[in-house]
């Protein structure tokens, strides 16, 4: 069966993408940011996921104000990078996993999360920047990607609790998918930042640290944070952080924090990054063998049913 093995939290600041695309990664300002992801790229290279579910938000690229879906799941075979006004970012087109995405959609909708299904979508920096930070700048992305776009642009975004519970439903969906797949889930956006109005430039490192601490140790506490607290304490656009709770909800209650990085600023934003691993690795083999057995049994039963119907 498919299994979510780890979660990655990462900011998705557009200027990080611009720095990559314009060859500025060695400038001291940007080196400070990129150096924080060196270990993460190593971790990802070792982890070799088959599929990445990337929770992100669109920034007036694929969705304007004509349609504002709260949760939109990318079920397409591929997702080209969007033109955000400077031409599409020079990154490879992302290959989707339509079969797993359709399976997730079907499972979570029956679990009462009414997703929008998107069969044609371009993806902006919200998705491509975290991909670069974790996978570098390869000619082809090394895994398939299922985008989950969350509305955090128009208030109100979904609550933190709703996001966390959606994460749990996604996990259940993934684990009921028969193929053996290693899945990593990304929560992106944040951390504290405000880019609009006279209060633009707001950063709250104390809040960010507490958010990261609780993300690992006490995510349920984070699910009780009301929107007003995010906006007041972490900036109007800091509310993007609710997307990290989808990632967290899809993991075990107890996880190992294997890496964390935090720096201020990248452009107008506090950059936060965390890698959380589930603890069931050792049990994996046994469970897989068990799953294979039960699949065989189910197949035998099905064959029997079909055979008896034919009589």
């Amino acid at each position: 069966m498919a299994r979510i093995i780890a979660g990655v939290g990462s900011s998705h600041v557009p200027a990080i993408g611009a720095a990559l695309d314009n060859g500025k990664t060695e400038e001291p300002y940007w080196k400070r940011v990129f150096s924080g992801f060196e270990k993460s790229k190593q971790w990802m290279a070792n982890t070799k996921p088959d599929v990445a579910i990337v929770v992100y938000n669109d920034h007036a690229s694929a969705f304007s104000v004509e349609m504002i879906p709260t949760f939109a799941l990318g079920c397409a075979a591929e997702f080209p990078p969007a033109d955000e006004g400077w031409g599409p970012r020079p990154v490879p087109t992302l290959k989707g996993h339509p079969a797993l995405a359709a399976h997730i959609a079907q499972s979570v909708i029956l679990d009462e999360f009414d997703l929008t299904i998107v069969n044609k979508m371009e993806v902006d920096h919200g998705l491509t920047v975290p991909m670069n930070l974790l996978f570098g700048t390869p000619k082809e992305w090394p895994c398939q990607v299922i985008p989950l776009a969350v509305n955090v642009v128009m208030y109100p975004p979904p609550t933190g609790h709703r996001c966390y519970m959606l994460g749990k439903a996604i996990r259940k969906a993934v684990e009921s998918y028969p193929e053996d797949l290693k899945v990593v889930i990304f929560g992106t956006g944040g951390l504290s930042h405000q880019i609009s109005g006279p209060r633009a430039g707001l950063i709250n490192s104390k809040w960010d640290k507490s958010f990261l601490d609780n993300l690992t140790k006490d995510p349920k506490k984070l699910t009780r944070i009301p929107h007003i607290d995010y906006m007041r304490e972490a900036g109007a656009e800091g509310i993007e952080m609710v997307m990290w709770l989808i990632m967290r909800g899809a993991l075990d209650d107890k996880v190992d924090e294997v890496y964390r990085f935090y720096t201020v600023p990248a452009s107008n934003t506090a950059v936060g990054h965390i890698i959380l691993e589930n603890r069931h690795k050792a049990a994996n083999k046994d469970k897989r063998a068990h799953a294979a057995k039960s699949r065989q049994a189910a197949a035998r039963k099905a064959a029997h049913r079909i055979a008896s119907k034919g009589r």
Binding site: V65, I68, V153, M154, Y155, P156, Q194, S196, G197, P198, R199, A200, H227, I228, M231, R232, A236
Partner: peptide, 20 residues
């Protein structure tokens, strides 16, 4: 409640309607 945040115009459903 968010009207109390200084220097901030929250893009809520009402502003989304007005600002279409």
């Amino acid at each position: 409640d968010y009207d109390d945040i200084p220097g901030t115009f929250v893009f809520d459903a009402e502003r989304s309607r007005q600002g279409y």
